[in-house]
Design a binder for these strands. Structure first.
Lengths: 183, 183
DNA sequence: TGCTCCATGTAACACGTTACATGATTGC
DNA sequence: GCAATCATGTAACGTGTTACATGGAGCA
């Protein structure tokens, strides 16, 4: 049960509606922790019932069904409690790596196009992360403790994408160099 | 649906029993793609029913219930088909990163012990990967195409663990430097 | 005798995904 | 008027997790 804690964290960073949360989980936050809008609505309903947060109709709602959520003390307490729970490091579950293992064992199945697609996607993400970094953490700016942590988290994402790109290019070189001549 | 393909790949690498598979998914392979024995038995039963693999009682079974699995042509075909299906790159879903975001937004909750635990676990994995590398890919050894791919996959794991350690140490330094004096 | 490991499974439940539904607002 | 976007949800299904069950083999 960690989606709840991801939602709590995200709401504490910026209290908002389920819809807005869902959109954030589909882009910026979503690169670190993905969730669909159905999961988020379900989780919000549960946490509302549990008294971890409260919902209210925001002043700018007009005639829409828009609901706004705010974390309550019980929610903060639960989040703090959870941070001290020991957790296992995640497994990678990387599809492209699994496909390459399949290629190795099946004999050449031509993963070059799929690998290129992945490189392009990682390149795209890297650009986005660097844009966020340039915007939120310009060089020389003094940072609070919280901002310093957030910057280091973003840097983790940047380095991860850089590593993926470097590794993917090496793998691409290997695949092309050992390509059977018939193709 | 990718656990099926992970199992197929693993069985092609070495055809074996459900139990042995489960143990492999709990250690070496498991670092890249984790699964419990219940998942594996369920998946094996499904694939058996689908005609992707066959089960038989191995000669060394004795009086045990041991079953051995071998991938059939239909299974190979399915695996090859799947490798060409476009797939999204995985999201990280990294618990320690989420906890650090929670720390940033809640104010200091003291994640130093949990972070140290993670560093120790990543260090342990790194040692294991390097041992496997030294054993299976000694320097200067000529490699087949399949072995070269497998080596590069292992290197990905090694670099990932190295990056996790380096990042974790930076974060630890930051947390300690900004620790409130009361603690 | 009792303990651990081998070996396979069932059942219940939690979590994630896909498809569908509803209705209001905004922009062309 | 129509399409896209805002905004929230239900339902069905598939995958992953946890708990429990069964029974043989090896060993102290």
């Amino acid at each position: 049960m960690s989606l709840a804690h991801a939602v709590l964290t995200s709401l504490l960073e910026k209290s908002s509606s389920g819809y807005d949360l869902a959109r954030r989980f589909d882009k910026s936050i979503g690169y670190f922790w993905h969730a669909t809008h159905q999961q988020i609505y379900r989780e919000l309903a549960r946490m509302d019932a549990a008294g971890w947060l409260e919902s209210f109709v925001p002043p700018d709602a007009g005639k829409t069904r828009k609901k706004h959520y705010r974390v309550l003390d019980a929610g903060r307490a639960e989040l703090a409690r959870w941070t001290h729970e020991p957790a296992e490091p995640m497994d990678l579950r990387d599809t492209i790596t699994l496909k390459l293992r399949a290629d190795a064992v099946l004999g050449e199945v031509d993963l070059v196009p799929e690998l290129r697609r992945h490189l392009a996607l990682h390149q795209e993400r890297l650009v986005k992360y660097r844009d966020i970094e340039a915007r939120d953490f310009p060089a020389g700016k003094a940072l609070t403790r919280a901002q310093a942590i957030q910057h280091l988290i973003l840097k983790k994402g940047i380095r991860y994408e850089e590593a993926e790109l470097a590794w993917g290019r090496e793998m691409l070189t290997l695949l092309c160099a050992t390509r059977s001549p018939s193709r």
